[in-house]
């Protein structure tokens, strides 16, 4: 049954009507407030079950709707986390919403990080900028289940020390012996004591076993392209590399076609895709 048939088989508008949720908490990730994390709670019912890597459609009433990755859950408090960057009309409007304000939520949608494929292996997470948000639930899973993966390498690239996301989490993750966390910045000030340089360099140097490793990548596409090359040079096979691609998701259920990328509808077939299945279109411009 394709997605159109699925939509037709359900109630009219199923999957397309946002449910009312409220912002339970709001935290600024960057001092200027341009990146912020919401914990959101449904007005009625349970928090839906999601898989790491999936996204929700968040609706600012009267303004518009945007696809935002789920960056974590607060199962105890019945909330989901979303980390947003104010870059367009809708997300700028969302930047002005406060705790207690209502939003609309549809989802979760899309494919997830294949945690089972990585089970028992070295897991390499390469995150660029806000690309850390969809990978955060994987790290939370690794924290809760230290036996799930042999070792986890979280390699984070960001513009400068001020734009490092989830700083408290990163510190907590760094303290776990089975989690190796490396942060590198493009521009480090005199006080920065971490790495300066591109995140692909960390891929080249990380001490994982390429013959038995799985990699999840999320960040700007040029960064992912270079990270794939670095992983290939280390000997990680294409079918063990997974990327999260961002396109103009709108309906979320594979019917409207706005997020078409070659043969894929990204809201349904993505955002997480296996690299060997998209290698032929990964670097096609204007696709």
């Amino acid at each position: 049954m394709d997605s159109l048939e699925q939509a037709a088989a359900g109630r009219p508008g199923e999957g397309l009507v946002p449910a009312p949720w409220r912002i339970a908490a709001r935290r600024e990730e960057i001092a200027d407030g341009s990146v912020f994390t919401w914990s959101v709670r449904p007005e009625a019912g349970e928090v839906p079950i999601y898989r790491p890597g999936q996204f929700n459609m968040l609706y600012a009433f009267g303004v518009g709707e945007v696809p935002i990755s789920i960056s974590g859950d607060g199962a105890a408090s019945g909330t989901l986390m979303h980390t947003l960057r104010a870059v367009g009309r809708v997300t700028r409007a969302m930047q002005n919403l406060k705790e207690g304000d209502a939003i609309g939520v549809r989802g979760p949608f899309g494919t997830a990080w294949p945690l089972e494929t990585a089970r028992g292996r070295d897991l390499i997470l390469v995150a660029g900028g806000i690309g850390l948000a969809p990978l955060r639930p994987v790290m939370c899973h690794a924290m809760r289940n230290p036996e799930a993966f042999r070792r986890v390498f979280l390699l984070i690239g960001c513009r400068d020390p001020q734009s490092e996301l989830f700083r408290d989490d990163v510190i907590a993750w760094s303290r776990r012996p089975h989690l190796q966390v490396e942060v590198t910045v493009d521009r480090g000030g005199p006080a920065w004591r971490g790495h300066v340089g591109v995140v692909t360099k960390r891929v080249q140097r990380a001490d994982f076993d390429p013959s038995d490793a799985v990699a999840f990548l999320c960040g700007p596409e040029p960064m992912m392209r270079f990270a794939v090359l670095a992983l290939q040079q280390r000997g990680v096979s294409d079918d063990r590399i997974f990327v999260s691609m961002e396109r103009n998701m709108q309906c979320g259920i594979g019917t409207c076609g706005h997020c078409q990328w070659g043969r894929y509808l990204m809201c349904r077939d993505g955002p997480v895709l296996r690299y060997d299945e998209i290698a032929d279109i990964f670097d096609v411009r204007e696709l």
Binding site: G128, G129, I130, G157, C158, R159, S163, D186, R187, G197, V198, T200, K201, G219, P220, P222, M223, F226
Partner: peptide
């Protein structure tokens, strides 16, 4: 290559 990537401000 690294310098070019750093200059291109990918994360911005």
């Amino acid at each position: 290559q690294a310098a070019r990537m750093q200059l291109s401000d990918l994360y911005g």
